[in-house]
Design a protein around this nucleic acid. Structure first.
Length: 309
DNA sequence: AACCTTTTCAACCGCTTTGTC
DNA sequence: GGACAAAGCGGTTGAAAAGGT
């Protein structure tokens, strides 16, 4: 096992144990942040010999690191196809959807976000999503929070993706719409039923071969419709991820265009400077990609939570 | 400017799964 | 089928950066 391997190489189970430190010293194994020289050594070695067999790789390359540490450094940081930087709206949407299906299966989720590592997705979930749950004083795994994500957060993400696509004039053609199946209608104050069977057709998660209904139940870990590998993903007609080139033919497009039926609340949702109604939760780093929460929604959720207690 | 608090994320730990003999 | 090693995974930690006072 890796633990055993580490024990034999690094000399201990607990990193902070004196035994471990002693053996680390004996083996002169390094820990902590990687230096530029170490990075270059690892990159050059893998460029020549390929990756894998991490323990022998570490020794052969002359790195005073465990094989495990080398593997992690390569996969999470040095690999040439690692994408860095802010998680895009599309990626956020995909993470939310896939997490609703698979839970904390970070590596599985990462397979559908090319260039993103499981570690990065995990960190995103913990720092952003769990933060919101904490702000709302509910458990991140609670039905209330999951419903909030599906009925408020995800439709809002779709809107923002659409809005940004429209702003950049590269939005793909969208078929005609009806007011009833716009995401706006789905969480319109008048139509919204928290956790109930509200009309959410505008934000159904679709794949090339499925039309998974976005019921609140589907947000749990059960009743998951199978998702095929190598599938292009669309959420509400918005391509949110792919394992290859998006093919519009695969898209079971759900009408998403805005219409005159958009309510005042909906308009506020895409109007970032409305100080009166909006409480934009700023994230450090300036992405603002997770700023979907407004006072009304938070109060609404809190009301639901108190009603259910 | 200095200090304190909060947030982020790279790296680690330990457990499980997979592969090989 | 058992033993062992390697790889993979998810949870957690802690240093550094950023924000707040």
């Amino acid at each position: 096992m890796d633990m055993d391997m580490d024990t034999s190489e690094a000399g201990g189970i607990k990193g902070g144990s004196s035994c471990n430190i002693q053996n680390d010293d004996e083996l002169d194994l390094r820990r902590g942040p990687w230096t530029v020289d170490e990075d270059l050594t690892l990159i050059n070695y893998i460029a020549t010999h390929g990756e894998g067999r991490w323990n022998s790789l570490a020794r052969s390359a002359g790195l005073k690191r465990t094989g495990k540490s080398c593997r992690l450094r390569w996969l999470n940081y040095l690999r040439p196809d690692v994408r860095r930087g802010n998680i895009t709206l599309e990626e956020q949407l995909l993470i939310l959807e896939l997490h609703s299906r698979w839970g904390n299966r970070w590596s599985k989720i990462a397979q559908y976000l090319p260039g993103r590592t499981d570690n990065e997705i995990k960190n995103y979930w913990r720092t952003r999503v769990q933060k919101h749950a904490k702000q709302l004083k509910c458990d991140v795994n609670s039905k209330q929070f999951k419903d909030t994500m599906r009925f408020l957060w995800m439709p809002r993400l779709v809107e923002r993706i659409q809005a940004s696509a429209a702003a950049s004039s590269v939005s793909p053609p969208i078929s005609t719409i009806t007011a009833a199946n716009t995401p706006s209608a789905a969480y319109n104050h008048n139509n919204f039923e928290f956790g109930g069977a509200t009309q959410i057709t505008g934000s159904n998660f679709t794949t090339e071969n499925s039309s998974t209904a976005a019921s609140s139940e589907s947000f749990g870990s059960t009743q998951l419709s199978p998702i095929s590998d190598l599938t292009d993903y669309y959420y509400g007609g918005v391509p949110v991820g792919n394992k290859g080139n998006p093919n519009p033919d695969y898209c079971q497009t759900v009408d998403l265009s805005y219409s005159d039926s958009i309510t005042s609340l909906d308009m506020q949702a895409v109007e970032p400077n409305n100080q009166h109604h909006q409480y934009w939760v700023q994230s450090r780093g300036g992405d603002s990609a997770d700023n979907f929460w407004n006072v009304e929604n938070m109060l609404f959720l809190q009301q639901q939570l108190s009603d259910n207690m």
